[in-house]
Design a protein around this nucleic acid. Structure first.
Length: 286
DNA sequence: ATATATCCCTGCGCGC
DNA sequence: TGCGCGCAGGGATATA
């Protein structure tokens, strides 16, 4: 579940280790990630100095001296960890290993292979098909009340899956969408256009949630680890996520779990009341 | 154009 | 104890 806080935490962990260093060589244990690792990957990356590490949405970009960049996505179970050669023991899903000059390794591990590693031919990430359609960064000034208000006005789908749409805003995934809606006191099933008037609150709460998670090094549920190998600890600060049947931290009501667009949503029925009625009345089965 | 379903993949927890 | 099944989920893609 790496979302923006987990990806940014990973980038921050890699930066001091990789920046200015040379990637002496690359070992590939398997190429069939979500998209196949490019045939030229080892050759393109080997011997290159790392100029900078950036993040766009849930992607990490590693800029190389030759003008190309490594593009990495952690999917939902991926991690990049820093290791010393001496202490390294190969784990089952260590797919790609970057050998830095000296005795340091960067290991890309991804059990479910929903993640990927690719090459970006120029420093202009908008040229890559996976990055060309992305919306604004949630912590940038481009993501503001006026923008969100206009964007929500055109949407009839429930607000929660809309917040996870990377064309609307990037970096918000299943965990932080539920958490931000709790803080904004908005029911996850409310049609998006009905909460356009609360755009300012939503912007504030999305940013507050992501920034708090960043301070905690992200959330570790199952697989995610920081580059240092440590777990994040924002999961201890969840108000609703994975708290089905537990008491609301604000009002003691029981947290409810529903499925929306195939994803788990959690909310407090008292703090986040319905403000609309379904069009079709439910017919009870006797 | 948006909205929803389907698929990718592995690990884990559950029930028998 | 062990095995099979269902679920989890980011995001691309297909379909309505």
């Amino acid at each position: 579940m790496p979302e923006l806080p987990e990806v940014e935490t990973t980038r921050r962990g890699l930066e001091p280790v990789m920046k200015g260093k040379t990637i002496a060589k690359v070992t590939v244990n398997r190429r069939d990630l979500r998209t196949p690792l490019p045939k030229s990957f080892e050759k393109t990356v080997g011997g290159q100095k790392v100029k900078a590490l950036r993040r766009r949405a849930k992607y990490i970009l590693i800029d190389l001296a030759n003008g190309q960049s490594i593009l990495a996505h952690l999917g939902m179970s991926g991690s990049m960890r820093v290791m010393k050669i001496k202490q390294y023991e190969r784990l089952t899903h260590d797919h790609v290993i970057f050998h830095l000059g000296g005795d340091t390794l960067i290991v890309f591990n991804d059990p479910r292979r929903f993640g990927l590693i690719d090459l970006l031919k120029t420093s202009d990430e908008t040229q890559h098909p996976l990055l060309s359609h992305l919306g604004p960064e949630p912590l940038s000034k481009d993501f503001n009340a006026a923008y969100l208000k206009a964007a929500l006005a055109a949407r009839k789908a429930p607000i929660k899956p809309v917040l996870m749409d990377q064309k609307l805003v990037v970096g918000v995934g299943n965990i932080y969408a539920s958490e931000a809606l709790f803080l904004a006191k908005i029911h996850p099933q409310t049609p998006a256009h009905e909460v356009a008037k609360h755009a300012a609150t939503l912007v504030k709460m999305i940013q507050r949630t992501l920034e708090a998670a960043l301070k905690s090094g992200g959330s570790t549920l199952r697989d995610y680890k920081q580059a240092t190998g440590e777990s994040g600890y924002f999961q201890h600060s969840f108000n609703v996520y994975e708290r089905r049947s537990e008491p609301c931290v604000a009002c003691d009501s029981t947290i409810v779990h529903i499925t929306q667009a195939g994803r788990a949503s959690y909310f407090c029925p008292t703090c986040q009341p319905h403000n609309y009625l379904p069009k079709k009345p439910r017919i009870s089965k006797a």
